[in-house]
Simulated scan of single mutants.
Amino acid sequence: MVPRIRVLVVDDQYLIRAGLAGLLRAAPNTVVVGEAADGEEALALAARLHPDVVLMDIRMPGTDGIAATRRLLDQADEPAPRVLVLTTFDLDEYVYGALRAGAAGFLLKDSGPERLLTAVAAVANGDHLFAPTVTRRLVEAYTPATGRKGAAAQDSTGEQLSELTGREREVLELTGRGLSNQQMAERLFISDATVKTHLNRAMAKLGLSSRAQAVVLAYETGLVSPGT
Rank of each mutant, 00 (worst) to 15 (best):
V10D: 05
V10L: 11
D12A: 04
A21Q: 03
R25A: 14
A26R: 06
P28T: 12
T30S: 06
V32L: 09
G39V: 00
E40P: 09
A44H: 10
A46I: 13
H50P: 00
H50M: 05
M56C: 10
I58P: 00
M60K: 03
P61F: 05
G62L: 02
T63K: 14
A68F: 06
R71Y: 09
E78R: 10
A80D: 12
A80F: 06
P81G: 06
L86S: 01
T88N: 00
D92Q: 04
D92M: 04
V95P: 05
F106P: 02
V120H: 05
V123Y: 03
G126Y: 10
P132S: 06
T133K: 12
T133F: 02
V139L: 01
Y142Q: 11
T143I: 14
P144R: 09
A145C: 09
T146A: 14
G147A: 15
A151N: 09
A151V: 14
A152P: 00
Q160C: 06
L161M: 13
G166V: 15
E168W: 05
R169N: 08
L172H: 05
G176H: 03
G178I: 02
L179H: 03
Q182A: 15
Q183A: 15
R187H: 13
F189V: 13
D192Y: 00
D192N: 10
K196Y: 12
K196N: 15
T197L: 15
L199I: 07
L206K: 11
L208N: 05
S210Q: 04
A212D: 01
E220F: 14
L223P: 11
V224K: 00
T228H: 15
